[in-house]
């Protein structure tokens, strides 16, 4: 489990290895403060939706998964529905999480509030579930570790990019490259740095 956790933060980093969650990564990384907020929100939603989707996959959608309803359901295969079920879970969960936080912790809601609806369409969350299906993790513990690790890796990436961008404001960049152009190149260079983790075998 620890292997999966470390691996999903550094080696299989969502941003640098798979370019997932790029849109909000580029859009929200202007200051460190907001990027921490979004990062925490992503981790939060990730550790809820990935295990829930895993349970749905295991007990509802896999070929023969419905056999607990009786032997006549043995042949049912609903796996073609997985995209739709995942995205519905994610949309419902973000809504639910938003309501729960609003009710119990207004201060946390105020700091995360605007980011939660954005997360429903963040590819990192959906990709968490899709990779979970593709890699065939064995039990819920491993799935939880993957969800936590991938969220943490994403947060690490966005916070470090935001820190670099805050410093970049003071540097002299050719005018056409200013703003988004240089951000792309910086991300590319950060990705190169992260590739040095590739040699680690766990």
């Amino acid at each position: 489990m620890i292997n999966i956790f470390i691996k999903s933060i550094f080696i299989d980093n969502m941003i640098f290895a798979f370019f997932i969650g790029m849109c909000s990564y580029l859009a929200v990384s202007k200051t460190v403060k907001t990027s921490i907020g979004l990062g925490v929100a992503v981790i939060f939603v990730q550790i809820i939706t990935v295990p829930v989707n895993y349970l749905l996959l295991e007990y509802v959608m896999k070929p023969g998964a419905l056999s607990w309803l009786g032997s006549s359901f043995n042949g049912v295969d609903l796996s073609f529905l997985s995209f739709m079920v995942y995205i519905a879970t994610i949309a419902a969960m973000t809504q639910l999480v938003e309501m729960i936080i609003e009710k119990f912790s207004p201060s946390l809601y105020n700091s995360l509030g605007i980011f939660l609806p954005l997360i429903a369409v963040n590819c990192a969350i959906l990709a968490g579930s899709l990779f979970m299906e593709q890699r065939e993790y064995k039990n819920i513990g491993e799935v939880f570790a993957w969800g936590l690790g991938s969220g943490t890796g994403w947060m690490l990436a966005i916070v470090s990019l935001a820190a670099i961008r805050e410093k970049l404001k003071y540097s002299k960049i050719p005018a056409p490259l200013r703003g988004i152009g240089i951000t792309f190149i910086v991300t590319g260079l950060m990705g190169l740095a992260f590739m040095s983790f590739l040699g680690i075998t766990l």
Binding site: A175, L177, R178, F184, T187, G188
Partner: peptide, 27 residues
Amino acid sequence: MPTMALVLVGCIIWIQRSFNKELIEKD
């Protein structure tokens, strides 16, 4: 390697914006 794609897109943006000045971001 995946990271080169980022650098390439960065360069495409650079080229495109140097032809279309109105797209250049202001500070």
